[in-house]
């Protein structure tokens, strides 16, 4: 019995180490150079409706990490974008041509079933969510680790998550979030992943005539 318990503990430790190692590999890979990807799938809006979603995610990793999320779908959000830096979150609303700037700590970037700031920062995701390795799975992009997670903070807006991480090129290929009744609130696939020559100027591009509103 003691032996079985010891084996179970060792297996648990090995699994914990594995997930830590996978997280480290993903972060190292994503931190190597600026990259962009297109996220497609479905998200649940605050009114409860599920809509087709397409975002373009651009990330400059490093000490002064910068991420930009451009909305292509749902059509109601087309033209809107969010720029996330260590200090600030810019939120551009196309219909009113307004750029709302908030401190990162205060800005709410949830609301689409998924916290957009976590998509480009795996370390931060691991800080907010308890991750565990569920197994492996074959995806169109190749063999992938299947990782499950439960949020450490109930305010994240979902009850469980599942991420597929490509083994050959450690990066997420899909993410699924579910609520407490196991209903999918976001299901997104990472496509068109590529290393890109992105600059802070590219990511901070906005209509020059946008009304700038600083909110603290």
């Amino acid at each position: 019995m003691k032996k079985l318990l010891a084996i179970a503990v060792l297996l648990g430790l090995a699994a914990a180490q594995t997930i830590a190692e996978i997280t480290r590999q993903v972060q190292t890979n994503l931190d190597r150079s600026p990259w962009e990807a297109t996220l497609t799938g479905r998200v649940q809006l605050p009114d409860g409706s599920t809509q087709e979603a397409e975002f373009r995610l651009q990330v400059i990793p490093g000490k002064e990490q910068l991420a930009r999320v451009e909305f292509k779908k749902p059509a109601a959000l087309e033209g809107n974008f969010v720029v996330i830096s260590d200090k600030e979150v810019w939120n551009y609303l196309f219909l009113t041509n307004q750029l709302i700037i908030q401190p990162r700590a205060k800005a709410r970037v949830e609301g689409l079933g998924i916290n957009l700031t976590d998509l480009g920062d795996f370390d931060q995701l691991a800080e907010r969510v308890s991750l565990r390795l569920l197994g492996e799975q074959t995806t169109p992009a190749g063999a992938a680790w299947r990782i499950g997670g439960t949020p450490k903070d109930a305010s994240l807006g979902f009850a469980s998550m599942e991420i597929l991480v490509l083994k050959a090129d450690p990066r997420p290929v899909s993410i699924t979030l579910r609520d407490s009744s196991n209903k999918v609130v976001a299901d997104l696939n990472f496509g068109n992943f590529r290393r890109a020559n992105l600059t802070p100027q590219t990511l901070r591009k906005r209509p020059a005539d946008a009304e700038v509103l600083r909110r603290n």
Binding site: L45, P46, V69, F71, L77, N80, F81, V82, N91, L93, T96, Q98, I100, Q102, A107, R108, V109, E110, G111, L112, L116, L213, R215
Partner: peptide
């Protein structure tokens, strides 16, 4: 005053 809804509006 204002209430912000992130990318969804304000």
């Amino acid at each position: 005053g204002a209430t912000e809804f992130s990318a969804l509006g304000r």
